[in-house]
Design a protein around this nucleic acid. Structure first.
Length: 551
RNA sequence: GGUGAUGUAGCUCAGUUGGUUAGAGCGGCGGACUCAUAACCCGCAGGUCGGUGGUUCAAAUCCACCCAUCACCA
């Protein structure tokens, strides 16, 4: 398989359809989008799908509380998610939903295949039940006193005070958060997936490049403990897909959520003649499949999901890319602290490209958390993007417009310097490929410094004053603008809008990686207009203030 | 409680397989310039690398324990 010609399918985690997109979500969508745009910029065939995660108890109950149907709520959030992500220039080929016919069919198909291969088993389990609400209770819906440290009002599965984990049967004085009634134990038949059958396959898969080493080490915990069967069913009432051959059993949301990747892609295939679902998902497919996810859902994607795919005779993901969480000013995002920033709230005050750049500057390939420090955000964006990058174009363009009728010269003043900039592509390309955007942007900004130094050395404003040297100004500024153009090719995955403005300014076609080879010479450019405005720290203050007002 | 990740200058981060006086950007201070969105250029000052102990001729880098933060525990 030639790694550089095969087709790529990429997914981001599906946002849960019970709340708005916030800046934490955006770490992942921006990370993925940059990677996808980079692949496309290099000319690779790369499809990017996503959608809303629609099922489960929280959505069912929230819809009930709001007096609307779950279906209605899910559609509303799906549209909102799509809108907000689009405004951040996240360029999906399709944004769908897990509550779709495609997903139902795929989930049922997978279930049938698993059943045929004897990978499904039923057995009766005991579970907490709320007699007043008339439903089984997820662990999170039970609160009580921690059996370890005695802290009151703790979740049914873990204590936030002492960190202990336990089963809901162990908690003292348990109460349902739905009705307040003490839960009773009740038997119910559940459907299990025989995960243990896949231990050898999973160990092999994770050890051979599907996950990074840090993630692999974490997964060893599961392998060491031994893989247990996975409960893939939930009792009614539940918002999800009913399990065939049952009256009141539904597929657990975490079974159908990743299948949603396939469903979204299937939905896309059905609307296009150039895409073939089987080519991407049949066993031994020559295409590449990547899932970008948060570190919190590694288990589902690196254990359950590949096992389900293998069991149902689909191809395995090529790799799982996990990232860390977002903190704001060094702390967890929190509504009470006024640091819970929704995508929509951000957009009322600030340009999405600022955030895309800031995240790029912070993102590496690992699962460390990244911090959005608002003061640093303002300083970094203004310094890098306006002070250094755009400044290159800004300081060269005036001379070309005023002294040379907007025309670039036919040659570069310093071809060696141009070559130095173009040669950086090898390293920058590798950084993007390995999701080391922080390293990529560091290298690019170093080049931006170099470009400003060059202009400072050649001093076109001095050359322009002397009749003998006035002609050199055109060459120097043409050089400067070509250096800028190279930098904009490198940054196009991160800053698509700025790249577009650059294309308009230079009067050229859409930039791609291949355009590094030839400089733009001997043509007319547009008069320069500011391409990016400085971040006003008052806008940031206004955003923060707006968040602190009680909604 | 268990597992994994993280903890380096005021801020945000780099530091390859342990090896000369620990680096960058921003901020601060000083200088220069005036083409540029008070931008850019040159220079300076800032750190006992979370803590303790250990291995080594030599550790931010390896080992042990501890502390803090984040995540997960089907």
């Amino acid at each position: 398989m030639d790694k550089h010609t095969s087709k790529i399918l990429v997914t981001s985690g599906l946002p849960y359809a019970n709340g708005p997109i916030h800046l934490g979500h955006l770490v992942e969508y921006i990370q993925t989008d940059i990677w996808v745009r980079f692949q496309r910029l290099r000319g690779r065939d790369c499809i990017f799908v996503c959608g809303s995660d629609a099922h489960g108890t929280p959505i069912m109950l929230q819809a009930r509380e709001e007096g609307i149907s779950a279906e209605e709520m899910v559609v509303t959030y799906q549209q909102e998610h799509q809108r907000d992500l689009g405004r951040f220039m996240v360029e999906f080929d399709n944004f769908y939903t897990t509550h779709s016919e495609e997903n139902r069919e795929l989930v049922e198909e997978i279930y049938h295949r698993l059943t045929e291969r004897n990978l499904i088993e039923r057995r009766v389990i005991e579970q907490a039940y709320d007699e007043e609400a008339g439903m089984f209770l997820p662990d999170r819906f039970i609160r009580g006193t921690c059996p370890v440290c005695g802290a009151e009002d703790q979740y049914g599965d873990s204590c936030e005070v002492c960190g202990a984990t336990y089963s809901p049967g162990e908690i003292r004085d348990p109460k349902s958060i739905l009705s307040g009634a003490p839960p009773v134990l009740k038997e119910s038949e559940h459907v299990f997936f025989r995960l243990g059958e896949f231990e050898a396959m999973l160990k092999n898969w994770t050890a051979n490049g599907a996950v990074d080493t840090g993630v692999a080490r974490k997964l060893d915990e599961w392998f060491d403990a031994g893989l247990r069967d996975w409960d893939i069913s939930r009792d009614a009432p539940y918002f999800g897909f009913q399990i065939p051959d049952t009256e009141d059993k539904f597929f657990y949301v975490w079974l159908d959520a990743p299948v949603g990747y396939l469903a979204s892609f299937k939905n896309l295939c059905d609307s296009r003649t150039d895409l073939n679902f089987e080519e991407y998902f049949e066993p031994g497919s020559q295409t590449e499949l990547y899932h970008f996810i948060g570190k919190d859902i590694i288990y589902f994607h690196a254990l359950f999901w590949p096992a389900v795919l293998e069991g149902a005779k689909y191809r395995l993901p090529t790799a799982i890319f996990a990232h860390g969480f977002l903190t704001v000013n060094g702390q967890k995002m929190s509504k009470s602290r006024g640091t819970f920033i929704s995508a929509a709230a951000y957009l009322e005050h600030l340009d999405p490209e600022y955030l895309r750049y800031y995240y790029a500057v912070k993102l590496g390939s690992g699962i460390e958390d990244i911090d959005l420090n608002l003061d640093d955000f303002v300083a970094r964006t203004n310094s890098d993007l306006v002070g250094k990058l755009v400044n290159i174009a800004s300081r060269c363009a005036g001379f070309i417009s005023k002294n040379f009728d907007g025309r670039l010269s036919d040659q570069l003043e310093n071809p060696a310097l141009q070559e130095e900039f173009v040669n950086a592509a090898v390293s920058i390309e590798a950084c993007y490929e390995h999701r080391q955007y922080s390293k990529a942007t560091r290298e690019i900004m170093k080049l931006a410094d170099r470009a400003n130094q060059y202009i400072d050395e050649r001093k076109p404003w001095v050359l322009a004053r002397n009749e003998k040297t006035a002609a050199e100004v055109q060459n120097v500024c043409t050089q400067g603008l070509n250096l800028f153009r190279v930098l904009m090719i490198y940054l196009k995955p991160v800053l698509p809008e700025l790249a577009k403005k650059t294309e308009e300014f230079l009067g050229i076609d859409a930039l791609s990686w291949a355009d590094l080879a030839e400089p733009v010479l001997g043509r007319s450019i547009q008069p320069y207009r500011p391409m990016m405005l400085r971040v006003d720290d008052k806008a940031v203050s206004a955003l923060v203030e707006a968040l602190q007002e009680p909604a």
